[in-house]
Each structure stands twice: as C-alpha cells, then as structure tokens.
Amino acid sequence: MYRKLVVECLGTFWLVFGGCGSAVLAAAFPELGIGFLGVSLAFGLTVMTMAFAVGHISGCHLNPAVTFGMYAAGKFPLKDVFAYIFFQIIGGVIAGALLFLVASGKCGFDVVASGFASNGYGEHSPGGYSMLSAMIIEFILTFIFLIVINGATSKTFSAGGGAVCIGLTLTLIHLISIPVSNTSVNPARSTAVAIFQGGWALKQLWLFWLMPILGGVAGGLISRFLYSKK
C-alpha cells in the first residue's frame, strides 16, 4: 500500500508540473506557439507516460474523481479511497509549489494576475463562460473519462493500448473545455494551483471538486452496468 500511495503522489506531481507547467511557463508566450493544443497534449502525455511507468503499481488514478469513480465501478476498495486522495493532493501541491518557484524566477511574474493555470468560470473563464456552463462541461467530461478508463483497463484491452487511449482522451477533454473552465476534471489538479493563486481561484474551487466527483461517480456506476458480467 505504501508503494501505491507514493506512486499516486509522484504521478499527480508529474501531471500538475507537466500539464499546468506547460500553461504557466510556455502557453503564456504566444511566440512559442504551443497554445491550447500544446497544453492539451501536455496533460494527455503526463497521464500516458505515468500509466506506462507506474500504472501496474497503483492503477495510476492521479485524480480524486477517478478514485471515486473506480470505487463506484466496483474496482477499488472504499478503505483506500481517502488515502489515495490525500496523497494525490500532496503530490499536486508540491508540484504547484515548485512551479511557483520556477515561474517567480521571471522578472515581473504575478501569480494573481496570471491566474496560474487555475480553473474558473464567469469572468475567470478563458472564454467568459458561465458557472452553469462550467458545471455541465466538468460533469460530462469526467463522466465520459471514467467510462473510457474502465473500458481501457478491462481485461480485453492491452495495457499499453489502454495507456494511450486514456492519455488521448484527456487530451481531447482539454481541447473541448479549456475555453470553458480551463479544464479541471481533477480536483487535485485544481487545488494544486488554486492555493497559490488565492483569491477568486479558491472561491471557485468548490465547483472543481463537486462536479468532477459527481461525474466520476456517475461514470463509474454506468461502467459497472456496462462492463460487469453479473
């Protein structure tokens, strides 16, 4: 169990440092040209690479919504749910802290003004979308994500193919929803940067816990119905 928790911490660290790092350090400079597509790929690649590296140890959840969803699907024990989530948050916050230190090395960097890759709605949505829009998009995309994860980790799917499928799905999710909410589908990822941005990011953080978890549980329950032999 200790190895699993360390892996969840490490994997979530990599997801936040790689995914949010691409947004904070690279996408902030249009001349570098990574844009929404580059950030979307960064998030997908972090999950895919960790799935190959450590998926066989912990299942590579890296996300409280995935942990709740896998429990709802009947594939994960309730007794381990909150330990996984705690270590996911720890890994994310460590990544957020190191990313803050790196970004602060640039003269004039302002963590509040930059948004620090935080998730938001209303005036803090990249495209100016409402709270209702963010709620709907976060629920639906996490719901679909859990269905894909459960299908891609079934015994009929190769381990390598599952990692690629899950990584590409997360890339697609970001391509759809970055303009709406800056894409969470992961409460640990949202928390990791919100606590450093402070202010509005912390005030809006509730939505990026509630809707991904509800979507994850719903996706897990549907997966249980679709894939269970009983």
Rank of each mutant, 00 (worst) to 15 (best):
residue 215 G to A: 08
residue 225 F to E: 11
residue 127 G to A: 12
residue 106 K to C: 12
residue 224 R to S: 14
residue 207 L to P: 01
residue 151 G to N: 15
residue 182 N to H: 13
residue 128 G to Q: 08
residue 140 I to D: 03
residue 97 A to H: 00
residue 186 N to D: 13
residue 132 L to R: 02
residue 212 P to N: 08
residue 99 L to R: 02
residue 23 A to Q: 13
residue 149 I to E: 09
residue 138 E to T: 12
residue 219 G to W: 03
residue 121 Y to E: 01
residue 176 I to H: 04
residue 221 L to N: 03
residue 215 G to E: 08
residue 33 G to L: 12
residue 65 A to T: 02
residue 37 L to H: 04
residue 24 V to H: 00
residue 144 I to K: 00
residue 109 F to I: 13
residue 171 T to I: 11
residue 228 S to C: 13
residue 164 V to K: 07
residue 102 V to W: 03
residue 71 Y to H: 13
residue 215 G to Y: 02
residue 179 P to V: 06
residue 86 F to V: 14
residue 133 S to T: 12
residue 152 A to C: 15
residue 175 L to R: 05
residue 88 Q to T: 11
residue 70 M to H: 02
residue 26 A to W: 08
residue 187 P to I: 07
residue 3 R to T: 14
residue 84 Y to A: 13
residue 136 I to C: 09
residue 16 V to L: 05
residue 2 Y to A: 15
residue 27 A to I: 09
residue 202 L to E: 08
residue 119 N to Y: 00
residue 114 S to L: 10
residue 68 F to D: 02
residue 100 F to S: 05
residue 89 I to F: 11
residue 109 F to C: 11
residue 93 V to Y: 00
residue 51 A to R: 09
residue 47 V to K: 01
residue 19 G to L: 09
residue 25 L to A: 10
residue 150 N to Q: 14
residue 101 L to A: 14
residue 54 V to H: 06
residue 55 G to T: 08
residue 68 F to W: 04
residue 142 T to V: 11
residue 34 I to R: 06
residue 45 L to P: 10
residue 69 G to E: 04
residue 137 I to G: 07
residue 92 G to Q: 03
residue 212 P to I: 07
residue 148 V to K: 03
residue 171 T to K: 08
residue 38 G to H: 07
residue 137 I to M: 06
residue 158 S to E: 15
residue 78 L to E: 01
residue 59 G to Y: 03
residue 37 L to V: 15
residue 152 A to N: 11
residue 13 F to G: 06
residue 119 N to S: 06
